[in-house]
């Protein structure tokens, strides 16, 4: 059975169809990439899956359970969590407290007495070991991204949604994040990630979904998708795909 299943999910804002009849599945242990130009509905899709938005139509299931229209904290308790495109750690709290929130409230719902040890372990895992006391507001962008990842992992998710985790990072930092993601993959975390850094996505994932104007226009192994004329059209404009076909 698929871990995550979307069936004809749609969402419109006024007259704009942000996401339109999107269906796909994600299996346990997979890392699936979501691509698409700006405004193609990637973040809206994430907001629908996590419950931040309610779909106009369609169903969303997690391990067979219908979670359509649930509030975000219930979706998180059920096992889906996310990071944000623009990092949003709890600035006024320490790094450790940030992770503790996820640990105490997410699917883990661990007791306070034992949660701190696991929170420390997760901080070390993302490369923030020994920096738990530092206020989140004083971390660098890279470290805030690490922290958000640790907070998300602390909720003990079945499925982790990463919204442009690598945006704004230097090539070296990007490489660091990729090492981290490979480690998470090995630990069996299922990941669905939106990424603009295409080479990273093509490197990490075995399957990619491409959105354009709210619709799924391609899905498959990265090489096949990268060669798909419709995808090339969307990224390079009409004609480019045609030229390639010819």
């Amino acid at each position: 059975m698929a871990l995550l299943e979307l069936e004809g999910v749609s969402k419109a804002f006024g007259g704009v169809r942000a996401v339109s009849g999107v269906s796909f599945t994600v299996d346990e242990g997979e890392l699936v990439g979501v691509m698409g130009p700006n405004g193609s509905g990637k973040t809206t899709l994430f907001n629908l899956i996590t419950g931040a938005l309610r779909p106009d139509a369609g169903r969303i299931r997690l391990a067979g359970r219908d979670i359509t229209g649930w509030s975000p904290h219930r979706v998180c308790a059920e096992g889906i969590t996310r990071t944000f495109q623009h990092v949003r750690p709890f600035a006024g709290l320490s790094a450790l407290e940030n992770v503790l929130v996820g640990r105490l409230y997410g699917r883990a719902r661990e007791r306070r007495a034992t949660a701190a040890a696991e929170a420390e372990r997760l901080l070390a895992l993302v490369g923030l070991g020994g920096r738990g006391h530092v206020p989140a507001a004083s971390l660098t962008l890279m470290d805030r991204k690490r922290l958000e990842l640790a907070r998300a992992l602390a909720t003990a998710p079945h499925l982790l949604l990463l919204d442009e985790l690598m945006a704004g990072l230097s090539p070296v930092e990007t490489e660091g994040v990729m090492v981290l993601l490979r480690r998470l993959q090995r630990e069996g975390v299922t990941i669905l990630m939106v990424e603009h850094i295409v080479w990273a996505l093509l490197d990490l994932s075995r399957r990619v979904i491409v959105l354009s104007a709210g619709e799924k226009i391609a899905e498959g192994p990265p090489d096949a998708v990268a060669a798909d004329p419709t995808v090339v059209d969307v990224y390079l404009g009409t004609g480019a795909g045609g030229a390639r076909r010819a």
């Binding site: 904290h73 969590t81 407290e97 105490l104 306070r112 909720t155």
Partner: peptide, 22 residues
């Protein structure tokens, strides 16, 4: 735990929800 959750709400309500805070 409740106090920590409240502070998370204070800092960022949407991020708190996404982290499982009702």
């Amino acid at each position: 735990r409740a106090g920590l959750g409240m502070q998370a709400v204070r800092e960022d309500e949407e991020a708190a929800e996404a982290s499982g805070v009702g």
